[in-house]
């Protein structure tokens, strides 16, 4: 270690530098907070969406699926599942198909990843699907490129 760097200089650089970067970080996060609520998430967070998110959390969906690439990698990404089910062209059909899929689990097909059976009421299923529809409207900087 260089002789001219004294221990107290190293200490001051560490504490001062860390504080400096943390302040910048907090500032950028504050700006991002504003951006998230005004630009990227313009679809309103209705009580149904909020309730759907709670169901997503209560049943640990993220412990198999990814959402915007985050979560476990045991099951498909769900950020655009609404589009994959044709929600843009036929919202009612997509909603029914998604609910039917969830209700029909597990498939018990050998060699295929199994999704558990969740005891969800019709309202809960509606809200969960509503949360996934809402998520599909968020501007993710065009991620994923495909798939």
């Amino acid at each position: 270690m260089a002789e001219h760097l004294t221990k107290s200089a190293a200490r001051n650089i560490f504490y001062g530098g860390s504080l400096f970067f943390f302040v910048i970080f907090v500032g950028l996060v504050a700006q991002s907070f504003h951006y998230a609520t005004t630009v990227s998430e313009t679809d309103p967070i209705t009580p149904a969406v909020a309730h759907g998110k709670r169901i997503w959390e209560r049943h640990a969906c993220f412990d198999c699926h990814t959402l915007f690439g985050e979560g476990a990698r045991f099951a498909p990404e769900l950020g655009h599942v609404w589009q994959r089910y044709g929600g843009l062209e036929d919202p009612d059909g997509a909603r029914d198909r998604l609910k039917d899929w969830i209700k029909s689990q597990p498939t018990r097909v050998e060699g295929r990843h199994q999704m558990p059976h969740f005891d969800l009421s019709e309202t809960e299923l509606d809200d969960l699907v509503e949360f996934l529809r809402h998520a599909s409207t968020i501007n993710t900087q065009n991620w994923p490129p495909k798939g």
Partner: peptide, 24 residues
């Protein structure tokens, strides 16, 4: 001090690598 300085100087703003595709 040098090691932990490098860790925080890079790591705090490095949080940004999780912020690419989540609506930020």
């Amino acid at each position: 001090y040098v090691i932990v300085g490098l860790a925080l100087f890079s790591g705090i703003l490095g949080t940004g690598h999780h912020y690419y595709w989540i609506g930020l």
